[in-house]
């Protein structure tokens, strides 16, 4: 068997001017072909106006085991949400 093409993660900016969003992955020999393939696979119905491709092996991600140390501390800081502060009804524009 020939060597496998590397895996690329594909990010598309939709028509609505939002941030690039992960849509899936594909195999391609290089970044240019990854963009071409992403166009064919992920934007056949006007789903996007811009494409990012990133080699899957270049992505560093948190692991499920780190979930508690990473995300639990924010649970106790409810004052970070505006709804923490009750406002009298007659105070406007806050």
């Amino acid at each position: 068997m020939s060597k496998e093409w590397p895996l690329w993660e594909i990010f598309i900016r939709s028509q609505h001017g939002l941030a690039h969003k992960h849509v899936g992955s594909l195999h391609a020999p290089d970044a240019g072909m990854a963009v071409n393939n992403a166009r064919d696979v992920y934007t056949r119905r006007n789903e996007g106006v811009s494409i990012w491709v990133v080699r899957a092996s270049d992505i560093t991600s948190s692991s499920p085991g780190d979930k508690a140390p990473l995300f639990d501390p924010s649970n106790s800081k409810i004052y970070r949400h505006p709804t923490f502060f009750p406002m009298p009804d007659d105070v406007k524009n806050l």
């Binding site: 020939s2 060597k3 093409w5 020999p29 290089d30 072909m33």
Partner: peptide, 16 residues
Amino acid sequence: GAWFRDGLLAHAEKQA
């Protein structure tokens, strides 16, 4: 399609 897939990969490696 093997020659084509291999060709693309060889090109990518040469460019890199």
